[in-house]
C-alpha cells in the first residue's frame, strides 16, 4: 500500500513548510511540496498550509496569498471536501479565502507572542483531530502577532451551536480571541485552521513542549488510509 500523500504549500515568505513536511513523514505519510505559483495540486489526498509571513503579510495577513495560482485550485477542491489544515499564517489565508469564517487580527496586547500554550480539543469531528479525545488538553507552541480571532455575533453563535470551534485556549487567552478560540472548522469539517503549531511538536529531540502535535498527522493519515 502506498503512503497517503499530504501536500505542503510554500508561498514566498512561508517559514514552517519544512517542519510540516517532516511531521507528515514522521507520521508515515508522503509529503508533497506544492508551490504557490503552480496551478497544480499534484493529486494529493490532503493539504497542509503552513505558517510564516507569506507575501510579507502585506495589506493583511494572507490577503495576497489567497489569490495565488495554487489557491485557485485549492479553494474549489476544499469546497468539494479535500481535507485542508492551516496553521498560523495558513489559518489566516483560509479565513481570507472565506474557506473558514471570521478573521484574525492584531493581538489585543499588540505584542508578538512566542510561548508554549495550553489548548483544549473541542471537536474530534474533523479529519485532523479524530485521533484526539474530546476535551483533551494539549500543549503546542504559538508564535504570532496577529492571532486574535474575531467574527460577528451571529457567526460566533453559529460556530458554537454547530460545534465548529475545534480548539480553545486554556490557562489564559494569549491574544484576545473571542470565546478563547484557537481554531475553527468549516461546516463540513474538512477544513480546519488554528493559530498554534502542531508541526513544531512532534519530536522530543527538538525541545518542543510536547509531542501533542503528532495527533494531527496520525489523524489525517488514518483517515486517508481508511478512506
Amino acid at each position: 500500500m502506498s503512503a497517503a500523500r499530504v501536500g505542503v504549500v510554500t508561498f514566498p515568505g512561508t517559514l514552517d513548510d519544512q517542519d510540516a513536511a517532516r511531521a507528515v513523514r514522521h507520521a508515515g505519510g508522503e509529503a508533497v511540496p506544492l508551490w504557490h505559483a503552480d496551478r497544480d495540486l499534484k493529486g494529493v489526498d490532503a493539504v497542509f498550509l503552513p505558517g510564516g509571513f507569506s507575501y510579507g503579510d502585506y495589506l493583511r495577513c494572507g490577503a495576497i496569498s489567497r489569490f495565488a495560482p495554487l489557491m485557485e485550485e485549492l479553494i474549489p477542491a476544499a469546497r468539494a471536501g479535500l481535507p485542508v489544515l492551516g496553521t498560523c499564517n495558513g489559518f489566516q489565508i483560509l479565513c481570507e479565502a472565506h474557506l473558514l469564517p471570521g478573521a484574525l487580527m492584531r493581538n489585543a496586547g499588540l505584542h508578538y507572542i512566542c510561548r508554549d500554550q495550553g489548548i483544549r480539543v473541542e471537536s474530534t469531528a474533523t479529519p485532523w483531530t479524530s485521533d484526539f479525545t474530546e476535551g483533551r488538553e494539549i500543549v503546542l507552541p504559538i508564535k504570532h502577532g496577529e492571532g486574535r480571532y474575531v467574527a460577528d455575533e451571529a457567526t460566533l453563535a453559529a460556530l458554537e451551536a454547530n460545534g465548529q470551534v475545534v480548539f480553545r485556549y486554556v490557562g489564559g487567552n494569549p491574544n484576545g480571541s473571542l470565546n478563547d478560540i484557537a481554531g475553527v472548522r468549516n461546516e463540513a469539517g474538512n477544513v480546519v485552521g488554528l493559530m498554534p503549531h502542531p508541526e513544531h511538536a512532534v519530536e522530543d529531540l527538538t525541545g518542543a513542549p510536547s509531542t501533542d502535535g503528532r495527533g494531527f498527522f496520525t489523524s489525517i493519515l488514518k483517515k486517508l488510509v481508511n478512506a
Binding site: 487580527m105 492584531r106 493581538n107 496586547g109 486574535r148 474575531v150 460577528d152 484576545g176
Partner: peptide, 10 residues
C-alpha cells in the same frame, strides 16, 4: 465599529 481596534486604542 464593533471590531476592537487595539492599535487605535494604543
Amino acid at each position: 465599529p464593533e471590531i476592537l481596534d487595539a492599535q487605535g486604542q494604543a
